[in-house]
Write a protein that binds this DNA or RNA. Sequence first.
RNA 1: GCGCCUGUAGCUCAAUUGGAUAGAGCGUUGGACUACGGAUCCAAAGGUUGCAGGUUCGACUCCUGUCAGGCGCACCA
Length: 554
Amino acid sequence: MKEELIKFTLDAIERAKKAGEIPSVINIEPLIEHPNDKTHGDWATNAAMVLASQTKMSPRKIADSIVKHIDDKHHFLSKVEVAGPGFINFYLSDKWFREVLKEIKRKGKEFGHFNIGHGETVQIEFVSANPVGPMHIGHGRWAAVGDALANLMTAAGYIVTREFYVNDYGNQMKIFGQSVAARYAELLDRDVIFPENGYQGEYIKEIAQEILKEERDKYLLLSEDERGECFKEIAYRQVLAHIKKVLLDMGIEFDGWFSETTLHDSGAIEDVVSELRERGYIYNKDGAVWLRTTAFEDDKDRVLIRESGEPTYFAADIAYHKNKLNRGFDKLINIWGADHHGYVQRVEAAIQALGYPKEKLEIIIGQLVNLWRGGEPVRMSKRTGEMVTLEELLQEVGPDAARYFFLMRSTDTPLDFDIELAKCQSSDNPVYYVQYAHARICSILKFAEEKGFSLPNIEDVNLDLLCEESELDLLRKLMELEEVIEICASRMTPYRLTKYAEEIASSFHVFYTKCRVITESVELNKARLVLVDCVRQVLCNVLNLLGISAPEKM
RNA sequence: GCGCCUGUAGCUCAAUUGGAUAGAGCGUUGGACUACGGAUCCAAAGGUUGCAGGUUCGACUCCUGUCAGGCGCACCA
């Protein structure tokens, strides 16, 4: 529709130029959008104002001239007017609104899907929690956002791969193993010094207990170092399995789990360092190997290989990105917490040093999550290991509410997550509001069925009977889905879809209070049954994209 | 000190990337059901968009400065 209107406008401008009403040298790309206020029409364009600033003519006069030359052969429009400083407002005919129902029926689950991705391949890397402990609330946000974004981009015609980068290498893993080993020895009443910077959480003790139960005291025979190594492996596998399970509880499945260790073992890091050296971005200083990231707007150069000969985390990360690029993805998306934003520039620099354009990689920085319980902040401390884990949160509020709350806000703003609100089964809670609309429709359809009105075939229905204000508002809203998905996918902002979900639900509830579906009139019943069934389909599609269930009963 | 993000209604957030009278939910106040799920709907009150300049037909949006909050500034991961 938007394209049609742009064409209308451009054609009209051409004709106005031929008629000598507008200077012919000017070319513009008019912007067509929905006005904020629906009394300003269904669509509006600023074309006349843009032309005005270029020609120094009055915008109203240009607008009048354009409107005069608009040729609406197929009667899409019920009215075109010039308003305000020179906007041209288009009013669609009701008939056109009703067409959307046929499209929903035709496309079903695919309604709202379209193709701007043209089969481009995209890899989204998200969550990537360190496998040394349970996931926290922030990981939940990235999980929900990453998965919804993947759904949205798939709907927009991209081929999407979800990946989890497993940081299973390095010092933290070593300390992790030592922490478990120390707790294990403690359980056997051995005198041990708990490692400095060791992991404090209760879960370390639980893992140690688990090992003790399975294997008794046989690890006491090993030296402390060997024990650490050994426990690192066992504990890491347990934690990773647990991470997978919790994500699955949230309904999230990754296509790939990429191990950092494989980069160290395969020589990928050395390879990428020598490639960078050949490209001239490497130098040696103070016994270490440095990457000249300042060549690409980083504030300082970064170490790749330490004085000790050990590669840094950054070096491994470059090798990881190189690996992703080698796999041939057209676009890479990383979702990181705000606590990693200082890391963005150097990774972008590395991508460019490898000869790729910066645009190849998109890094979404998400602000952190604050947990509230009934208006009181929930204090958490990583140091003492005192925190609410993602698993606990899911158990308390359920995956639907959790995912909805995580998605509700722009990732640019910190998220206040109120546990009490998320649990609350009332209209205060948007997730219930939306799901309720879906359940209500299912209930109506069932009621109709019982009364002998089964869902009719849309060809047998007189859609012109849908002419109440609330019905037309609902149709108008249904029509917006494709645009919303486009915006969400292209700007990578899934939160907008939650707003749309609430708008659809709201339009439906208004319709429900104004119009009865099952009335005396058989013909009207048919039309309204088709309408509500289409609303059900759209709600279902939206909830699927968000990764939230669409219940038939609540 | 430097960098990134954020300051919008009492609270939590929007505003289609520069458009028309800045909108929703919660909260407050007042209303609406003999029928399809009241987990609903309607209405009112509530604003100098942190502050000060600038850019232009037009600014919450862009620029400069300033104040406040969050997060970063490793040969940690």
